[in-house]
C-alpha cells in the first residue's frame, strides 16, 4: 500500500523525488546495458516485471484486520540486481498511480524510494549475505523476498512519520502509529511473498538453468547438482 496522492507535504514530495531520481536514471542505464549485452535476458526481465505487477495487484487480508499488498521486487533484485528493479518498480507504481488512483504522482518519489530502491537493495543485501554463508539457495531467496517486502513498508512508515510527527510524542510516536498500520500488517504478507518468490525460483531452476547460471544465481557445478537433487 503506497502513500496516497497529495498526502505528503510538497517539500517532502520534492525531496523524495530528488532522492529517487538518480537511482532510477542509473537503473535505466543498467537495464539498457543488460538488454544490449544479453538480448536473451529480455524475456526473464519481462517475467520479473510481470511478477511485480501480479503481486502488487493482490490486496490480501492480514492479521491486523486490514489489507495490504506485497511488492514482488525481491525476485528481480536477486536475478538482475537492484538497479534494474528501480526501473521495473517505478513502472508498476506509475501504472497504479495513473490508472488506479493508488499511490500518486506527487508521492511517486517517496513510493519509488521505498518500493523500488530500499526494498530491492535490502532484500538483495540479505540474499547476498546469506549466500556467502552457504545457506541453501531457496532459504536465501525466501529471506531476500521477505526483507524486500517488509523493509518497503518500514520505509513508508518512516516517510509518513517524518512528514507528520505526532504533536505529543513526536517522530517516534508517529512512527509507532504508522508502523502498526503498515509494517505489522505487512509481516504475514511478506511471508506470502517469500513463499511465492520461492515457487517462481523453483520453476526457474527447472526451466532456465542456463540463465540462472549466467546471472550468478546458480553458482557452481556442485551447486547445480544440489539443486537437481532438490528438484527430484
Amino acid at each position: 500500500m503506497h502513500i496516497a496522492e497529495g498526502f505528503l507535504p510538497p517539500a517532502h514530495a520534492i525531496a523524495w523525488g530528488v532522492a529517487s531520481a538518480p537511482f532510477v536514471v542509473h537503473g535505466v542505464r543498467s537495464l539498457t546495458r543488460e538488454v544490449r549485452e544479453h538480448p536473451e535476458s529480455t524475456l526473464l526481465l519481462g517475467a520479473s516485471g510481470a511478477f511485480t505487477f501480479v503481486l502488487s495487484a493482490l490486496k490480501l487480508p492480514s492479521v491486523t484486520g486490514s489489507c495490504s499488498h506485497p511488492t514482488g521486487t525481491g525476485l528481480g533484485a536477486i536475478l538482475f540486481r537492484p538497479p534494474i528493479m528501480a526501473v521495473l518498480g517505478t513502472i508498476t507504481l506509475l501504472f497504479q498511480a495513473l490508472l488506479l488512483a493508488h499511490g500518486g504522482l506527487t508521492t511517486l518519489g517517496a513510493n519509488v524510494f521505498s518500493m523500488a530502491i530500499v526494498g530491492p537493495w535490502a532484500g538483495y543485501g540479505v540474499y547476498r549475505l546469506l549466500r556467502r554463508w552457504d545457506v541453501p539457495l531457496m532459504v536465501t531467496v525466501f529471506a531476500g523476498a521477505f526483507v524486500a517486502d517488509l523493509s518497503t513498508y518500514c520505509v513508508t512508515s518512516v516517510q509518513l512519520a517524518l512528514a507528520f510527527p505526532d504533536p505529543g510524542s513526536g517522530f517516534l510516536g508517529a512512527l509507532g502509529k504508522f508502523g502498526s498500520i503498515f509494517a505489522v500488517t505487512q509481516i504475514p504478507l511478506a511471508v506470502s511473498e517469500g513463499l511465492l518468490t520461492v515457487i517462481v525460483m523453483r520453476l526457474l531452476v527447472q526451466s532456465s538453468k542456463g540463465e540462472l547460471t549466467r546471472l550468478g544465481v546458480l553458482l557452481t557445478r556442485s551447486g547445480e547438482r544440489r539443486q537437481e537433487a532438490v528438484a527430484r
Binding site: 500500500m1 496516497a4 489489507c67 495490504s68 495513473l98 493508488h102 505526532d166 504533536p167 500488517t185
Partner: peptide, 27 residues
C-alpha cells in the same frame, strides 16, 4: 479489512486535523 493506505490517511488526519491533500489523482 480496509486498505492500510486508507488507515494511514485517517491517522494523518488524526495527527494533523487541518491537513488537506494538495493534489488529487488525475484519473
Amino acid at each position: 479489512f480496509a486498505g492500510a493506505d486508507a488507515e494511514a490517511e485517517t491517522a494523518i488526519t488524526e495527527i494533523e486535523p487541518d491537513y488537506e491533500p494538495w493534489f488529487s489523482p488525475l484519473y
